[in-house]
Amino acid sequence: MGRALINVPATAKAGDIIEIKALVAHVMETGYRHEVDGKPIPRDIINHFTCAYNGVVVFEADFYPAIAANPFLSFTTIATETGVLTFIWTDDKAEKQVETARITIT
C-alpha cells in the first residue's frame, strides 16, 4: 500500500469531540471488471480499517467494493488523554498500512 493522509487536531481539551479524517491511496479494484481479452481483473480492496486511541479501538469499518477508490473516512472520538492514535488499513492480500498521529490534551 502507499500513502495515507490523516487529519487529527494536534491539541484538544479533555472531553472535546474531535473529528478525524483519514484518506488512503488504494485502487479498490472491485473484482467485477475484465481486461479486453476477457480475463477478469481480480478483486483488490481494503476491506478493514481500525482506529485505536492509546491502544483501545474506538472506531472500526468493513469496506466492500462499493467504497470509492482512495478510501476516505471521517468520524469522531472524544479526546481523553495525551497520546497516539493508530490507524490500520488491511487489504485483500492481508497487507497492512499503519499510520499514527499524536494528540496533546491541553
Binding site: 502507499g2 500513502r3 495515507a4 493522509l5 487529519n7 479524517k21 484518506l23 488512503v24 491511496a25 477508490a69 482512495n70 476516505f72 471521517s74
Partner: peptide
Amino acid sequence: DASNPAMLWVKD
C-alpha cells in the same frame, strides 16, 4: 485538503 484525494500525490 483533508479530503481531496489529490493531496495523497502531493504528499508523495
